[in-house]
Amino acid sequence: MARSLQPVSSQETREPRVLLIHPNDTVAVALDPIQAGTSISIAGIEISVRDDIPFGHKVAIRDLEAGDWVIKYGEKIGVASQPIHSGEHVHTHNLESSRGRGDLLVAEREVQ
């Protein structure tokens, strides 16, 4: 099928889409893959993305201390396990669940 090749605006040329679900959220969701070094604008704030963020993954939109709640959907989704800087990928390496932690229960028993 003959079809003229036209320049198509690729994902690299347009700004990747990022979704802030709730105004209180401390993370936003990447609706396109984002490359490290990209600048994105969320709720009027300019954020320089520090890591590659895969589609559907979370990016911090403000600095968090270790032990701080991480908020998405306007709700607590877990605790920062290390300091997180704005623009960093937030996932299993720096965010921990606070629920269903039988492992912590065992650790507690071993200390006693």
């Binding site: 895969p54 559907g56 998405k72 959907y73 996932h91 299993t92 921990e96």
Partner: peptide, 15 residues
């Protein structure tokens, strides 16, 4: 779920 971007059970539940 984790590969898809979900980190914790709370986050999965809220979805």
């Amino acid at each position: 779920n984790i590969a898809g971007g979900i980190t914790t059970i709370e986050e999965k539940s809220l979805g």
